[in-house]
């Protein structure tokens, strides 16, 4: 089970405006792990996620997925193996029907028609949205949109699921349903979030980022019980008496 699925070695990234979002990040994720990225806004969580799918690329091959550097000639493979779900489902669902949206990835991969139908079916089953094929994504609830957004990457048969703030904007019930759903998916998961309760329930490992650096990386219970550490990085109420 200890297959290294994502390896990052000394990744730094500076946005064109000079903002240094990532600073010498190194980490390894094994197959089947469920890893949370936590940290204040602007810590670099989203920027890091965008590197995993090759939307952003580091020139020196600092990021490897399944042993392949995230570079031009492996992009097709990597994009089918790493499913990236953005925070706002409204921005990713752009097709007239749920079916078209979920089929978009497999169609881009050039799958034959029968396989596309089978993949769409399976992906919708996985997020418990079977029967929604003909609905318009625009008219679904936020929770339903989130699930469809997840289905749109599941249909590409990924090995890694990367999620940016999956529980934001959901009501408590929708949130718990989503957490349960994610728990049931047998994939490697990387989740950027502020939702520490979800982290506690879903991820066995937590990485704390702040100002583009990894501050802590370890088992979730250890990190989430370290009040001092959390307070220092703005994730818990400040501790009285601390400067």
């Amino acid at each position: 089970m200890d297959e290294k699925i994502i390896q990052i070695e000394g990744l730094s990234f500076t946005y064109p405006d000079g903002h240094r979002a990532l600073n010498n990040i190194s980490l390894t994720v094994n197959r089947g792990e469920s890893v949370a990225f936590i940290g204040p806004n602007g810590a670099g969580k989203s920027t890091l996620l965008l590197h995993l799918n090759g939307i952003l690329r580091s020139p020196n091959g600092a990021v490897k997925v399944l042993g392949h550097p995230v570079a031009e000639n492996y992009l097709r493979l990597i994009r089918s193996k790493v499913g990236l779900v953005f925070q706002d489902p409204e921005d990713q669902l752009f097709s007239p029907t749920v079916f078209d949206d979920v089929a978009f990835g497999p169609i881009n991969m050039g799958c034959p028609e029968a396989e596309i139908r089978q993949r769409v079916n399976q992906a919708l089953q996985q997020v418990q949205m079977g029967g929604y094929e003909k609905r318009s994504p625009h008219h679904l609830s936020v929770g339903e949109k989130k699930r469809i957004a997840i289905a749109t990457v599941l249909s590409m048969n990924p090995e890694v699921l990367v999620l940016d703030e999956p529980t934001s904007n959901l009501d408590p019930r929708g949130r718990w349903e989503l957490i349960e759903l994610l728990r049931g998916l047998p994939l490697t998961k990387l989740i950027a979030t502020h939702d520490l309760e979800m982290v506690r329930n879903l991820c066995e490992r937590t990485i704390l980022l702040d100002r583009g650096r990894i501050v802590a990386d370890g088992p979730t219970p250890a990190i989430l019980t370290d009040k001092l550490l959390l307070a220092e990085h703005g994730l818990a109420p400040p501790i009285v008496g601390q400067a």
Binding site: I55, S80, F104, V153
Partner: peptide, 18 residues
Amino acid sequence: ELAMAMDARGFRGAAHRT
């Protein structure tokens, strides 16, 4: 964001599509 989401799902122009 839409462009990124399309990219992430392997869009390479309509010619490659089924």
